[in-house]
Amino acid sequence: MLPRLALVPGEPAGIGPELCVRLAQQPRTDCTLLAFADPATLISAAATLGLPLQLIHEDAVAKLPGDLRVRPVPNASPATFGHTDPRNARAVIEALTKAAGACLTGELDGLVTGPVHKAAINAGGIAYTGTTELLAEHAGRPVVMMLANEIVRVALVTTHLPLREVPDAITATTLEEALRITHAALRGDFGIPHPVIAVLGLNPHAGEAGHLGREEIDVIEPVLRTLRAAGMDLVGPLPADTAFLPQKLRSVDAVVAMYHDQGLPVLKYSGFEQAVNLTLGLPYPRVAVDHGTALELAGKGTADPSSLFAAVATCARIATIRRAHRAA
Rank of each mutant, 00 (worst) to 15 (best):
V73M: 01
L42S: 10
V70D: 05
A45Y: 07
C103D: 03
F81W: 11
N75S: 13
A46S: 12
V61Y: 04
G82M: 06
K98T: 00
A46L: 07
H83D: 13
A76H: 13
T105Q: 05
T84F: 06
I43D: 10
I43K: 12
P86E: 15
V70M: 04
E107G: 05
E58W: 10
L64A: 15
D67R: 11
L53I: 11
G101T: 05
D109V: 04
R90P: 00
D109F: 01
P72N: 12
A100G: 14
G106F: 05
T48W: 05
T84M: 06
T113W: 00
T113M: 02
P65R: 06
R69N: 02
V70K: 03
A102S: 14
V116P: 02
F81N: 10
G106Y: 08
R69E: 00
G66W: 12
L55K: 06
R71N: 06
V92I: 15
G50K: 08
A95L: 03
G110V: 01
I43W: 03
G82F: 09
F81R: 11
K63Q: 14
A46V: 05
N88E: 06
A99P: 06
T48M: 07
P86Q: 14
A102Y: 06
P65L: 06
T97R: 07
V73T: 03
T97L: 08
D109G: 09
G114P: 00
V116K: 04
P52H: 11
T80Q: 15
L55E: 08
L68K: 10
A95P: 04
T97W: 01
L108Y: 06
A120N: 15
V73L: 01
G66S: 12
V92H: 10
N75T: 10
L108S: 07
S44Q: 13
A91M: 04
L55D: 08
L104G: 07
A46Y: 04
R69F: 00
E58Y: 09
P65A: 05
V73S: 00
I43C: 09
D109M: 01
A76P: 07
T48R: 13
V116F: 04
A76V: 10
L108N: 03
H117L: 07
P78I: 11
P72D: 15
T113I: 03
H117P: 09
L96K: 00
D109R: 04
G106I: 06
C103R: 00
G106Q: 10
A47E: 15
V73A: 01
R87A: 15
L42G: 07
A62Y: 01
G110H: 02
P52M: 08
H117D: 14
E94R: 04
L111K: 01
V70F: 03
A60T: 12
R69C: 02
I93Y: 02
K118G: 09
D59A: 10
H57N: 15
A95M: 07
L104I: 13
C103L: 03
R71Y: 06
A102Q: 10
H83A: 15
A45L: 08
